[in-house]
């Protein structure tokens, strides 16, 4: 196994509420609470979770767009938790991103030439001219855009084309890691698959590592080698993409899978039955007021007493990864097996 390109270890990101004169201090928002993962070159790590799970904060922390409260981030073995200003340019050359909204992630006043070419000039010192033009054309070709797009402005392009430009912009500096934060979420179904294929081809050609962040477990599973499931800042389960999907060891993972409807009425009827075993009238706790125990306990159909008292530690799961759930060590002691049969039987018993 090759050495990981990105290692995130015990990452915490908290946003302190600012206390103001005459106002009660806002409570600290605990967006990310001790998550660890690693990505090797040529591989894709998928991070999945709902809004408020902290997945985008992880991306921003790795990208140096937000301050890390605790933990370390290593790139190729070197500590990049807090990159000093003089080293920032070198860091930017190695980590790039494709952001969610294809409309606001490109500046309306610049042409594709400038959007993609900026990075080439900045990092390789190639001034605008024939050489830079050649490079930009090659990049556009890589993401499946014709040369005529050089002169286009963002508002002249569709969402899918913009996302391709974003990918080309990221590739321009030849990074080792690209973070795709909800990069396909805003696209139409028929366009989403085009962009996913572009990402796959880029990885095959360049060997870049991907951190792929999304809320749709089916999409994330499809593009990822490994996945991590986030809930309220915790990584509640991680492992090989297919393993986690087929043998979910955390009830929340199971809930996510059951919630995404599949385009097949028979299969969907089964998912629906499973979905209906979950509680309907509870909402997740606020990240500024996390409970002592497992944050999922109040929504979990099979929660036990210990769940509200103690945050479970990570234990090995059958699929080869880890899971943070008491069911595997106490109660039914599932020992890393899939949680699905247990939830089914518990719901029929009720």
């Amino acid at each position: 196994m090759t050495a990981p390109f990105l290692e995130v270890e015990n990452l915490h990101v908290h946003f302190a509420g600012r206390s103001r004169l005459f106002r009660s201090a806002m409570p600290t928002v605990k967006a990310v609470n001790g998550i660890s993962f690693a990505i090797e070159p040529h591989r894709t790590f998928g991070l999945v979770g709902e809004s408020g799970s902290g997945k985008s904060t992880v991306a921003r922390a790795v990208l140096q767009l937000t301050d890390v409260t605790a933990g370390t981030i290593r790139l190729d073995g070197a500590d990049v938790t807090r990159v000093p200003r003089e080293a920032e340019l070198a860091f930017r050359k190695r980590v790039q991103a494709v952001l969610q909204d294809p409309y606001s992630s490109l500046n309306q006043v610049h042409q594709v030439r400038t959007i993609v070419g900026d990075g080439i000039t900045r990092h390789f010192g190639i001034k605008p001219g024939p050489e830079r033009e050649q490079r930009i054309l090659a990049l556009l070709d890589e993401v499946g855009l014709a040369g005529e797009f050089l002169d286009r402005y963002p508002y002249e392009m569709s969402g899918g084309q913009r996302q391709r430009v974003s990918i080309a912009r990221a590739l321009a500096v030849e990074p080792g890691l690209i973070i795709a934060d909800e990069a396909t979420s805003a696209l139409d179904v028929s366009i989403q698959s085009q962009v996913i294929n572009v990402l796959r081809r880029v990885q095959a050609d360049t060997g870049v590592a991907f951190l792929f962040i999304g809320h749709d477990l089916d999409v994330v599973r499809h593009v990822s080698d490994d996945v991590g499931v986030m809930y309220l800042g915790y990584l509640v389960e991680q492992g090989g993409a297919d393993g986690v999907y087929d043998l979910p060891a955390h009830p929340y993972t199971e809930m996510l899978i059951a919630s995404v409807p599949v385009p097949d009425p028979a299969a969907q009827a089964e998912r629906r039955a499973l979905r209906q075993t979950f509680k309907k009238d509870t909402e997740p706790p606020s990240p500024s007021d996390l409970p002592v125990g497992c944050p999922f306990a109040n929504r979990c159909p099979v929660a036990m007493d210990i769940c509200t008292e103690l945050m479970p530690e990570a234990t090995a799961a059958r699929h080869g990864g880890h899971v943070r759930c008491h069911l595997h060590t106490s109660g039914p002691v599932l020992a890393g097996e899939s949680v699905v049969p247990y939830i089914r039987s518990a719901s029929t018993a009720r």
Binding site: L63, L65, E88, L89, R92, K93, V95, Q96, A97, L99, Q100, D101, S104, S105, L106, N107, Q108, V109, H110, D118, G119, R122, H123, S166, R169, A170, A172, V173
Partner: peptide, 26 residues
């Protein structure tokens, strides 16, 4: 707050360059 300013930082542009080339035109 716009994503493209984040994108410009990720590309490695310096704050003065971002102010000049991204904020001022807008």
């Amino acid at each position: 707050e716009e994503l493209y300013v984040d994108a410009a930082r990720i590309t490695g542009l310096s704050p003065p360059a971002i102010l000049r080339r991204y904020i001022t035109p807008n």
